[in-house]
């Protein structure tokens, strides 16, 4: 498992999401603020947890500010975020 550095991606535009990933001591924390919390909050948290697990990313805090992004957008942003966090670590 590669080490990770703090990274961010996305925007605060409507129908997009802004995300930050940073390493922590232990465990995986997911923080979500969403304009569609009522309708999709649980499914967004589940998607994020699943993608982190698939990528083997742990001991991180993931913060998502969701402005009503579609699932495909959220997946793309998460993929980029994890990639950037690894890249940052590789360059460090």
């Amino acid at each position: 498992m590669n080490t990770l550095k703090k990274a961010s991606c996305g925007t605060m535009e409507s129908s997009d999401a802004y995300m930050e990933l940073e390493p922590i001591e232990a465990g995986t924390q997911i923080e979500l603020q969403s304009v569609v919390e009522h309708q999709f909050g649980d499914s967004i948290r589940a998607l994020a947890a699943e993608m982190l697990k698939e990528e083997g990313v742990e001991n991180v805090k993931l913060s998502i500010v969701d402005r009503g992004a579609l699932e495909c957008t959220l997946r793309a942003r998460l993929e980029t975020l994890i990639g950037r966090a690894r890249e940052e670590a590789a360059h460090a």
Binding site: S14, S15, V35, V36, Q39, F40, R67, G68, A69
Partner: peptide, 9 residues
């Protein structure tokens, strides 16, 4: 007049 969806809704 309305779009199919707004901010995922």
């Amino acid at each position: 007049i309305a779009p199919l969806s707004r901010a995922r809704l």
